[in-house]
Design a protein around this nucleic acid. Structure first.
Lengths: 154, 154
DNA sequence: ATATATCACTTGTCTTATGCAAGTGATATT
DNA sequence: AATATCACTTGCATAAGACAAGTGATATAT
């Protein structure tokens, strides 16, 4: 959204959130980490939506600056870093779940949903119909914090 | 985000959501309706964040096209329309609540929070600490569907 | 009834953000 | 030693947003 942030448009909590992650790409990166276990620049780059290299670099830098992500060096390969969620990043899981739930309820999305894996589609439907999301959120958080990810055989 | 949408970047449900409301302004308009009871172009224009006239018109048109908002004529004044949420728009309330909750948890937000009304601040804190959001969502939905709004003496 | 104000926009221009292609430097592999 | 891979950066084209100034329809004031 904005690189050198000093002036917020307002301090409304909705606006505050949007200033942090309300651009076209930030939440897709978080999604890749949470649902697909992606961790590196190269992995994020391969996502279906096709983010540009410069934009990806800019988003990773700003998410790190905002304290949503941290970088850690790869054990053996000095070229690559692992990006992971901070606690502040983990707290975005409920938001992600609600976005998925919103889409999952809509016929428009359902019509084109056939592309995903059966497990993925099953989970989206579950998110959409579950009112109390606490269990879902706890499961996801646990999966991610075990350095695994959610749409996976665990 | 994009005006004449035909090609989605992907059909991931997160991306689907972002293609619908994932720009800098759409959710702020929804917020104005839900939390502040705003209904007209002129009211949206007055919000703290200072949206431009052309952008507001474009967002209202695209939210209407996507079926998130509908327009209804004012009873007496033929110049103005009332914008209101569709059911698809109502379903965005949980998302808004999670954004508020996320911001409300952060010291960064809390430090500058003094500007809001006491009622508003109290509610933000409540959103932030409540795990099961069902009651909150039901209250908001009821307030909005009564053509009222949430941060209000009801 | 006429003049002025208000409302919801549109139009044009400038600036900023994003998209795309082609590098670059450091490390790893063959 | 040569080539490939990884995580970027740089430069330029395009799209989206910000800003200022209209416009047309309706409403209000005189």
């Amino acid at each position: 959204m904005k690189e050198s942030s000093n002036s917020l448009r307002s301090n409304c909590p909705v606006n505050f959130g949007l200033e942090n992650f309300g651009d076209k790409w930030s939440l897709l990166i978080i999604r890749d980490i949470v649902f697909w276990g992606k961790k590196t620049y190269g992995e994020f780059l391969k996502s279906d939506e096709g983010i540009s290299t410069n934009i990806l670099a800019a988003r990773l830098a700003s998410l790190e600056k905002e304290g949503i992500l941290t970088k850690a060096p790869h054990a053996t390969d000095k070229r690559t870093d692992f990006y992971m969620l901070t606690e502040k990043g983990f707290e975005l899981i409920p938001l992600l779940v609600e976005i998925v739930a919103w889409s999952g309820k809509l016929a428009e999305w359902q019509e084109n949903s056939g592309v995903g894996t059966p497990e993925q589609i099953r989970q989206v439907k579950r998110f959409a119909k579950t009112q109390d999301k606490r269990k879902i959120i706890a499961e996801i958080r646990e999966a991610v914090s075990k350095n695994s990810y959610f749409f996976a055989p665990r």
